[in-house]
């Protein structure tokens, strides 16, 4: 029952994050959803990842969002839709329903087995290739941010100048 409550709360947070009119609120609701997901993970027997999710997912990412929102500013967009609302409902429910029908019978049949290695062994030894590749990803991220946001002293293209003017 507790799991159901957490799930419901997380989904509410998610919905609020999507619905919130102000971006800052949206980011905070996201942080809430993240925290509840972390809690669920903890309950599922994954304490380490729960901590990391709490600090990175709910903490760091939220800070980044606040930072980005500060840089870009709030923007009031009128209510015009991008695609017809009924279509998005149909697509959403079609896909979710099909996936549920496919998945649900299978997921409860799985059984709990034996734990055979510690987290540290698995993370640093068994999966060391994944772990090493995280460094590459971080590098790509750093280079990406540097590349995208470094100061622009170089020439502006003509189209750019037109747009500024």
């Amino acid at each position: 029952m507790f799991h159901v409550l957490i799930a419901a709360a997380a989904l509410v947070c998610a919905i609020q994050a999507v619905r919130a009119a102000r971006l800052l609120l949206s980011a905070l609701w996201l942080a809430g959803a993240s925290a509840l997901v972390a809690l669920e993970m903890y309950l599922l027997g994954a304490p380490e990842i729960a901590v990391i999710e709490l600090s990175v997912g709910a903490g760091l990412v939220t800070v980044l969002f606040v930072f980005a929102i500060n840089l870009t500013g709030e923007e009031n967009l009128d209510a015009r839709r991008t695609i017809p609302r009924p279509l998005s409902w149909v697509l959403l429910f079609g896909a979710s329903a099909l996936l549920l029908i496919f998945i649900l019978p299978g997921i409860n049949q799985s059984e709990t087995g034996q734990v055979y290695a510690t987290f540290r062994e698995i993370f640093w030894e068994d999966r060391q290739l994944d772990t090493l590749l995280q460094i590459l990803m971080i590098l790509a991220g750093v280079l990406g941010v540097l590349g995208l946001l470094s100061d622009q002293k170089t020439d502006l293209s003509p189209t750019q100048k037109d747009r500024r003017a």
């Binding site: 599922l44 027997g45 994954a46 799985s110 993370f123």
Partner: peptide, 16 residues
């Protein structure tokens, strides 16, 4: 990870 008794492996993937 939980369902197959390999919580640690599941966590490890989730970190990545």
């Amino acid at each position: 990870g939980r369902l197959t008794g390999q919580e640690e492996l599941g966590q490890s993937l989730a970190i990545t």
